[in-house]
Design a binder for these strands. Structure first.
Lengths: 208, 208
DNA sequence: ATATAATCCAAGTAATTACTCGGAAAACTC
DNA sequence: GAGTTTTCCGAGTAATTACTTGGATTATAT
């Protein structure tokens, strides 16, 4: 639908700093005050640039949020792809699942206050290309896990089940990452999530 | 935090009609245009009442949305409690799970356009008392399912796992209810969700 | 050094919005 | 039917907000 492309990409170091400052300020404001209180004037003020500067680089407010989402999600996706490559080399699917889940939660936790707002409260974020493709990738992934773990206890509707599993996993990842708890407790929940995911995908508990 | 209680409850039939018209209009507007475009003036116009009337019964905009959420969720909760009572009488936990999941999806589907906005885009809705207690009830419920299905293949952290399962189930219910698909396909997904839930809770597939 | 392009900026604007106010009409009480 | 309460209403207000504009300043190219 609407295009969220930046109006002009910054060309010089000076403007690149402004550009980044705007995105950083946006992240801070989202984390602290939520999406409802986010205004372009406040972003500019927080970023230490004039409001005109903001509109030199972004066509509108949504574009700023979309660009921020893209940047943050790119980091998560990168981590996940690497984790998937590592998991593929692991032979043991149970270890692979554990690793992927751990990395996913870890990638989100670092910026959990921002992600909580972006992924749960901004109306257009779920429809952003980066989000759509991320979720599709997750569904494809949970297919492969199931296959890798052996097809003995197979599910009747492989694609639908893979989609369901990935949706459930995705949401649980967010919930765990968003909780305001200590690292030990988060690690425990992460491990239990891995176990439940394995149960869903394979139909039994992993061997010890 | 903020109180969302109605300023004055309507006492006469005439005002009760206005009150209901306001809530109906709110639901329609949310379904059609989302939370961002929801304005009190538009609600009053849609409802066919003056803006002053709206503020006779509600202290502010959030209170209207909170009241609507309460009403809609009360319906869902009622259905779920009844379904739980029925499921308890069923002996077979697998049939019980299937029944609960089916009823849950069914309760949401009827008003899925409104629920999609309320439950996924309105910042304060998840913190509403009705939502908090609903989710707690779901967690307690998935505990009981696990116990009812026999503790042979037990999970190491019962409470944490019950919480995780209920969160995943809750989110999957929403996803399935929100999809724009036909009833056959929705029924199929619902059934598969029941199976995956059973797998998570019990650790194996239901017999036959 | 000059021309051109990039960057910065903030006062101003037009539109929107939540909510108030004060009084009129209708319903209930006795 | 007088008095009281409930209900209705919409013009008006004060605040907010996304975005424009046009000119000043700085960097780059030649």
């Amino acid at each position: 639908m609407t295009e969220y492309k930046a109006k002009k990409r910054p060309k010089q170091a000076r403007s690149r700093a402004s550009f980044d400052a705007i995105l950083d300020a946006t992240a801070r404001l989202l984390a602290r005050r939520g999406y409802e209180d986010l205004t372009t004037n406040r972003i500019a003020e927080q970023a230490g640039v004039g409001i005109g500067t903001l509109y030199d680089f972004f066509p509108n407010k949504e574009a700023v949020v979309a660009e921020l989402t893209g940047r943050l999600m790119a980091g998560v996706v990168e981590n996940m792809e690497q984790a998937f490559a590592e998991a593929s080399r692991m032979e043991d699917p149970w270890a692979g699942v554990r690793h992927m889940v751990t990395v996913a939660v870890g990638s989100l936790v670092e910026e959990r206050a921002v992600f909580r707002v972006l992924l749960r409260q901004v109306p257009f974020v779920p429809q952003l290309p980066v989000m759509v493709s991320s979720r599709e990738a997750m569904a494809a992934l949970s297919q492969r896990v199931r296959i890798a773990a052996g097809g003995a206890l197979d599910l009747p509707m492989p694609e639908e089940d893979a989609w369901l599993i990935s949706e459930m996993l995705y949401n649980a990842l967010l919930e765990i990452a968003f909780l305001d708890i200590g690292p030990e407790r988060r690690q425990m929940l992460t491990r239990e999530l891995a176990r439940l995911t394995y149960r869903m995908a394979v139909g039994r508990d992993p061997e010890a």
